[in-house]
């Protein structure tokens, strides 16, 4: 493997790791932190839902779908730029 290709692969993995880390942080917030504080969030409301309830039955689910979409677009861009392109 050439030196250039090696370097490209290193950057590719670094960027992939960063993206994955960001995705997992957002995931953690919507999967655990918000449901944990459902009682406090319920003091607020959204679209006629108590907010804590909304996240658990709908909001977090929508975020998960969008999160995968975001990751895939980002990862596709990383692959296009730094993939070894065989």
């Amino acid at each position: 493997m050439t030196e250039d290709k090696h370097e490209k692969r290193r950057i590719h993995w670094e960027k992939t790791r960063t993206t994955t880390f960001i995705v997992l942080v957002i995931w953690f917030v919507f999967a655990f932190i918000l449901p944990w504080f459902a009682k406090d969030l319920n003091a607020m409301s959204f679209l006629g839902f108590e907010l804590g309830y909304y996240f658990v039955v709908q909001g977090s689910l929508i975020v998960f779908v969008l999160l995968i979409l975001f990751q895939n677009l980002r990862q596709d861009a990383i692959d296009d730029e730094y993939g070894s392109g065989n």
């Binding site: 994955t20 995705v23 997992l24 995931w27 919507f30 999967a31 977090s60 689910l61 998960f64 999160l67 995968i68 990751q71 895939n72």
Partner: peptide, 10 residues
Amino acid sequence: TGGYVLVNSL
């Protein structure tokens, strides 16, 4: 549902 974020990223 949230499990799929793990499936996709890991």
